[in-house]
Amino acid sequence: MLVLIVVLLALLPAAAILYPFLKKGAGAYYEDEDETSTAAELSRRWDSAIAGLRNTELEHAIGSLDEQSYALLREQYMTEAALIMKTMDLEEEQEQALRDQMDTQARDVRSRILGHESPPGEADRCG
């Protein structure tokens, strides 16, 4: 009986370990950019600019940023995002789609704090 239990105990991990080798196509990696590459650097800068924009909206919504600081910071992040889009040499439609998504993000942050959609025109400043 003990032998049977031991065999069963050993069979469980053995089956799990062998399964990926027996199943065709188990596990796939994506060819990865080296993290020191230009594309990876641009991706990092882009994420940082978007995070900065979201933070700026948040801090403004809860009253930690006055209008002047808000406008300045927003301008800085938007310029950074525009520079990256230019460097990436994107199509016009792709750039427009990204701007729209950025607007949506900004509206989402504001509405979560203030409980309403931003007044018309305010969101346009995202683009």
């Binding site: 196509g25 796939a28 994506y30 060819e31 594309a39 882009w46 990436m88 998504q101 949506t104 993000q105």
Partner: peptide, 14 residues
Amino acid sequence: PARVSIPIRTRAVR
């Protein structure tokens, strides 16, 4: 809202 990702292409390879 959908994450705003810059379209840096990666290829799926086995």
